[in-house]
């Protein structure tokens, strides 16, 4: 049985948070550069140019890419043959989150739902983190992290369709969500779609779909084709960068599919702004 110490997890989480806040990942950068090349609207092109310049400034001056440094969202795979020493895994991730957000001069954005009071002094700086655990084979610890901003979460939606609505029903729903969102989620966006499972499984899958390398092919050829079809439909909406009109509204569509109940077709759409700040470590 392999052992990892609590303090090592805290340190790794802290470092990944601070690094991700100021360094736009390579996949997001590549997708933005491609959008810049292909954009037909001069106004939208200028916006994408600002985004690329922003990424450069953030990196060299170690300044957060965006003032909304998000809620800290984690997908964690824990090997069954791994033992955590010195504290619980959940506490370690939360402590790393607090340290990373504080030391990185990132924004504390968690608040009480009703009073709207910031929870930095009551629970902890930008705590609690949103953590999804999965127990897997082996003795490794895999942590995926994303800084998830509010603007793009606010336009995300889930709906349980009737099975007869099928693929066309899914396309219609996704188009409705993105069309209504318009400029609000900071396009060009990445669209995560969770299909199947139960109501909450679809939502979690749509979130996890956003962690895939932007624009990488879906390993399932049928889903890959479906992603490209939806991407085309969404770009036909003409929303463009920051909603000012243009051809490049969506950088990528990512789908995760699960078996579902014979009576239902759950679909969830989770939107990611262009500042797709995510990272991955294995301990």
């Amino acid at each position: 049985m392999r052992t990892i110490h609590y303090d090592d997890i805290v340190k790794s989480v802290k470092n990944m948070i601070m690094h991700t806040a100021t360094n736009l990942p390579e996949d997001a950068l590549k997708a933005l550069k491609k959008a810049y090349e292909e954009e037909k609207s001069p106004v939208a092109k200028k916006v994408i140019e600002q985004l690329l310049e922003n990424a450069e400034i953030a990196k060299t001056e170690k300044k957060p890419l965006c003032q909304d440094t998000g809620l800290a969202v984690f997908f964690v795979k824990v090997g069954q043959d791994l033992r955590i020493e010195g504290g619980t895994l959940k506490d370690a991730i939360n402590e790393g989150t607090e340290q990373g957000y504080k030391e990185g001069y990132l924004r504390a954005s968690t608040c009480d739902c009703f009073t709207r009071e910031n929870l930095k002094d009551k629970i902890g700086y930008n705590l609690p983190a949103i953590i999804h655990f999965d127990l897997v084979e082996g003795d490794k610890l895999e942590i995926e992290y994303a800084a998830k901003g509010g603007g793009s979460e606010n336009v995300s939606r889930a709906r349980v369709l009737a099975p007869a609505q099928g693929k066309q029903g899914i396309i219609n729903f996704v188009k409705e969500v993105i069309s209504e969102a318009g400029p609000n989620p900071c396009p060009p966006i990445i669209v995560g779609i969770g299909i199947g499972g139960t109501f909450e499984k679809a939502a979690i899958s749509s979130k996890h779909a956003l962690f895939r390398e932007a624009g990488s092919p879906n390993p399932d050829p049928e889903l890959d084709k479906f992603e490209k079809e939806i991407l085309q439909e969404l770009n036909n909406l003409g929303i463009g960068a920051m909603g000012m009109g243009g051809t490049q509204t969506v950088l990528a569509v990512h789908i995760e599919k699960n078996p579902c109940h014979i009576a239902s077709l759950p679909v969830s759409v989770n939107v990611q702004c262009h500042s797709s700040r995510h990272s991955h470590i294995e301990l």
Partner: peptide
Amino acid sequence: FGATGGAGALLSK
């Protein structure tokens, strides 16, 4: 007026 969302480092200058 609209400013570019997600360009917080650039705008802060």
